[in-house]
Computed example of a mutant assay.
Amino acid sequence: MKKHLLTVLLAVLLSTYAIGQRTPALSQGAQVMQTIGVTDFTVNYSRPTLKKRKVFADSSALAPYNQLWRTGANSPTTLEASTEFNFGGRTVPAGKYALLSIPSGTAWTVILNKKYDQGTESYQESEDVARVTIGPTSGEFHEAFKIDIEPVSDSTGYVILSWSSVKVPIPVSIRTESLTMNALNKVIAEKPEDTDALENGAGYLLTKGKDLPVALSWADKAIGLKESYYNMWLKSSILAKLGKYNEALPVAQKALTLGKSDDQAFTGFFKGQIEKTIAEIQPKVTPKTVTTSVKGKKKKK
């Protein structure tokens, strides 16, 4: 009985020890996380290395031409986006997808497929959500396969596949402005007395230079709820953008008086910005015209 118990305990210990061990994979796992505008992208993949082997060729053992490739090694490569986006000219809903490709010398086929947890063996073209053709270019040499996401603006960027001296840049774009405005309108509709939401909305429209009367109304509402140097500065900036310099100047001057010396955000940043706004507005202020009437004496007849 004791011998049996010792055997069981030894088996449990060996099992626990084996589970606790982690050995390095031949192709190291990697993750890319990047925000473009208001959209979060995440790519999970593994990075095979060349090790003096040939890649992207008819006779290659690594990602041969005209054959479906998992675009990495080990587990399927996945791309996940938090909002709807455009992938190489195709509109794709928010979600998680398998990132697959078919390499070629002149034009790669890059694929997003719904079955993100399955390998190439079970691939079905009917599950594709995007299938685009991208011309490869020459790039910096990489011993290990690499995926990058490079933002170009707050609404555009590239998912870049790089290995050896081959580079495949897939353009992505997002309707950042409409997504942002939809979110702002929703928050302000649901929380009409949320000063942060009103200020965020006014500030965003100001930076875009669009719908300034709406921005002004949101700034005014925020001021009515809780006057601060920030929303007063926002209002003065919007008025200036509308060309209403005479109205903007006293609002900016008041914003300066509302700041406190113990407020680090004010003293470290906003005070200088408000002073800059005042300096920009002052030369554009039109002096008030003073009209006077002089009564003439009646001539004697």
Results as ranks from 00 to 15, higher is better:
L258H: 05
T91V: 12
P48Y: 01
V132Y: 02
G89C: 13
P93C: 10
Q264A: 14
P93N: 10
T49K: 08
S162K: 14
K301R: 13
V38E: 09
I278T: 01
H142R: 15
T156H: 02
I238N: 11
L212K: 06
D128I: 04
T277V: 08
V251Y: 01
T7M: 11
K284V: 03
L14F: 14
S46C: 07
G201L: 13
S101N: 13
Q21A: 05
P103E: 07
P93I: 01
W233V: 00
N200I: 08
V8D: 04
E199R: 07
G95H: 06
G243Y: 09
D194P: 02
S122F: 10
T292C: 03
Q31L: 13
T207K: 13
V38N: 13
D211I: 10
Q21H: 11
A183L: 06
S122L: 12
K186H: 11
A279R: 14
P171G: 04
D40V: 10
V8L: 13
A215R: 14
K191C: 02
V290A: 13
Y230F: 09
Q282H: 00
K301P: 11
A11W: 05
I36Q: 08
L50A: 07
Y230P: 03
S261A: 15
T49Y: 08
S82V: 05
L79M: 15
A94T: 04
F41E: 00
N66W: 01
G243M: 09
E84P: 04
E280D: 12
L258V: 07
F270M: 11
D194M: 08
D148Y: 05
D220G: 06
K221M: 02
V129Y: 00
I281K: 10
R47C: 05
A255L: 07
L99D: 00
T39F: 02
L234N: 02
L5F: 12
F266D: 00
W233M: 12
V38M: 07
S122R: 10
L239S: 04
D194I: 05
G157F: 12
K288A: 13
V129L: 04
V8T: 11
M33W: 00
G95M: 09
G201W: 11
Y158D: 04
S27P: 05
S153Q: 02
S27D: 07
M232L: 15
Q124S: 14
S15R: 00
S164C: 00
P93T: 04
L239C: 05
Y245T: 05
K2M: 07
E121T: 15
I160P: 00
